[in-house]
Design a binder for these strands. Structure first.
Length: 595
RNA sequence: GCACUCGUAGCUCAAUUGAAUAGAGCAUCUGACUACGGAUCAGAAGGUUCGGGGUUUGAAUCCCUGCGAGUGCACCA
């Protein structure tokens, strides 16, 4: 039973006692900082029951609580708002019970199981800024669910087959001269990406030539010699042509090697990988079964469709007239395979950009029509695009921010600023290297995660490398500073035992504010899970760090004469440090002992 | 054209899902270490929440409408 719900119960009893109405339809919110108190009852809706004006209603409830509540010490009324101040002893009690809790911030196992997909790149080019938001988001949501007691499976679908990779293959075959990551020293995913760019360059030239001969653009794109090579490769791939498969395997393996390096740098991992080349056949089968069962229909040219006009959507192709599969086909196969592999999962989360909202609406409907009732428990975690100050990222215009480059720049900037501040004294190279990495990556992750996932966001490189204010490094700094205090407390052999803590009778305002925040962590965690939003955690941990800094600035710790108070402040600092570390870990960000 | 999403300080973002004088950070200006770490803290300034109607005791939030932006509507992925 937590504080908020006890208070709610008391208020409910108060309303019953003074107005004779049993209702839980009232709102308790945190008190605005400018007013005295911690909890505020909004009294406007109660006037219907009380038959009095809001101020009077508030006053009557307030008086009753003073007389009867175990928690409330004082109240004040501003307009229709009843601001309640709780007894200091209550806050002390709340804190000591939190302090003695072993797994603070980890909810007990709830027996639920969930699968979360993220990343899911194409294998023809390196990861970029958009993938970073995707990966950090998906990984963090997985951590949030773990913290809420779920068993979580982190997966991705690798789009390893299709025309996109054939384009890279075609260009490499034509112009590569056998170049490999080893021979060129270029990271595998970047090398394959280089040939993807090369393909488009050549294609553009060839199309231009054909257009000059009077062939319309659309036709020219199909007829361009290099496109013919790519399409031929796609066909050969479907026929399992040995040479093509070998090339495909080799180039994909380069990409995977490159991706592995990047994922490691990002601090992102997966429990299981799915490959489109392994799931699209199952998708095909399902579509054919659906056709037999009358769920889908066939057009004269042999293509197979689903009709969703009854659901307010359109008709959608599921198999081409030549029998080859489309994007949707393999997603059907993948979903079914996953629920087959993990029969106990309660749901599946797809972390995919909001430009695919329609696609997932259709996918989930199709799965339902195929009779899979778990389709209702599939959720598209749709996030907004990342824009640049110069506008949208466009691979054709070369305005894509490369993931590897960006991470390297962030770490380099962290190094520069840290050295300027002289923060690395007494550290060896390994320690300082780890620190630069922690700060650079922490700044990047926090920058991308603090914004509500649903919203599109602007990535300003200059702002992202800021280390002050609402940033990851600000929070890391706060943690390091608390650790310095705890080290000193250790060296002074200051104990923090529960009995002594409980003897405290009064608290400073900033101490109460901290205790209130600390006690609210679990409800924030649940909110973050419900909304699939690491931003909730990011905002919380920032608030926590900021509030601690205010406390730190306002109240001296080691010059305190009262031993119990001294112990309390150390214990409070320790708990805040733990929660900062825990929250940041959930965001995928490490915090240093010193910086 | 149709559908969906969005529009909050100069800039980037919040707002307990309908409550108080709409809050933070950056940038600008003014202050604060003889104590525990100044990557900090205190303060000032900055708003017709895109415009216009409506519902409500109460609207940034809900409804209608106008304007502006983004995304989707392929036998692409």
């Amino acid at each position: 039973m937590n504080l908020d719900s006890i208070l709610r119960t008391e208020i409910q009893q108060a309303i019953q006692a003074v107005f004779g109405a049993d209702t839980d339809q009232f709102q308790v919110q945190p008190t605005n900082a400018e007013f005295e108190g911690s909890h505020t009852l909004v009294c406007f809706p109660l006037t219907k029951i009380s038959k009095k004006n809001p101020e009077e209603t508030a006053k009557i409830v307030g008086e009753y609580l003073i007389a009867n509540s175990q928690l409330v010490a004082a109240y004040n009324v501003v307009k229709g708002f009843l601001n309640l101040s709780l007894k200091d002893s209550v806050w002390v009690e709340v804190f000591t019970s939190l302090f003695s809790q072993a797994n603070l911030g980890q909810l007990p196992k709830n027996g639920q199981e969930i699968m979360i997909e993220y990343s899911s790149p194409n294998t023809n080019k390196p990861l970029h800024l958009g993938h970073l938001r995707n990966n950090f988001l998906g990984w963090s949501v997985a951590e949030i669910y773990k913290a809420c007691g779920y068993k979580v499976h982190k997966v991705q679908i690798i789009n390893d087959r299709g025309i996109h990779i054939c384009k890279s293959m075609a260009a490499w075959k034509l112009y590569g001269n056998g170049e490999t990551p080893k021979s060129s020293g270029i990271k595998g995913d970047h090398l394959v990406g280089k040939y993807y760019v090369e393909f488009n360059k050549v294609l553009t030239e060839q199309v231009k030539e054909l257009e000059a001969k009077g062939i319309p653009k659309e036709e020219a794109e199909k007829q361009a010699p290099i496109m013919k090579v790519a399409i031929d490769m796609l066909r050969k791939w479907e026929y399992r042509d040995d040479e093509t498969l070998q090339l495909w395997k080799m180039m994909n393996s380069w990409v995977y090697e490159g991706f592995d390096t990047t994922y490691k740098k990002m601090g992102v991992d997966f429990d299981k990988l799915y490959y489109e080349s392994n799931t699209f056949l199952l998708g095909k089968e399902q579509v054919l079964t659906g056709l037999e069962n009358g769920v889908f229909f066939k057009k004269e040219d042999g293509s197979i469709w689903v009709d969703l006009t009854g659901d307010g959507l359109d008709q959608k192709v599921l198999l081409r007239s030549d029998g080859t599969s489309v994007y949707m086909t393999q997603d059907i196969g993948t979903a079914i395979l996953r629920f087959h592999d993990y029969p106990n999962i309660n749901g599946q989360v797809y972390t995919v950009g909001n430009e695919q909202e329609y696609h997932f609406k259709v996918l989930f409907l199709i799965l339902q029509k195929l009779g899979y009732d778990w389709a209702k428990r599939c959720y598209h975690l749709s996030y907004g695009m990342v824009d640049l100050p110069t506008g949208k990222m466009k691979s054709r215009e070369g305005t894509v921010v490369d993931a590897d480059d960006l991470i390297d720049e962030m770490v380099a900037e962290a190094r520069k600023q840290t050295l300027e501040l002289g923060k690395t004294e007494g550290m060896d190279d390994e320690e300082s290297g780890t620190l630069f990495n922690m700060i650079g990556l922490g700044a990047l992750k926090f920058f991308l995660l603090k914004v509500d996932p649903k919203k599109k966001m602007l990535f300003d490189p200059n702002e992202s490398i800021q280390l002050q204010g609402f940033t990851g490094p600000f929070i890391q700094y706060t943690h390091a500073r608390i650790k310095a205090i705890l080290r000193k407390a250790d060296s002074l052999a200051i104990k923090t035992d529960a009995e002594t803590l409980k003897s405290i009778t009064s608290l400073e305002t900033s101490e109460k504010a901290l205790v209130q925040l600390v006690s609210g962590f679990e409800s924030k965690l649940k909110e973050a899970a419900k909304d699939y939003s690491p931003a909730v955690i990011a905002n919380y941990v920032y608030e926590l760090a900021k509030t601690y800094n205010q406390f730190y600035q306002a109240i001296p710790i080691f010059t305190e004469n009262d031993n119990a108070k001294l112990q309390f402040r150390i214990a409070l600092s320790k708990t805040v440090a733990n929660l900062i570390k825990r929250s940041m870990k959930i965001l995928g960000i490490d915090v240093p002992e010193r910086m």
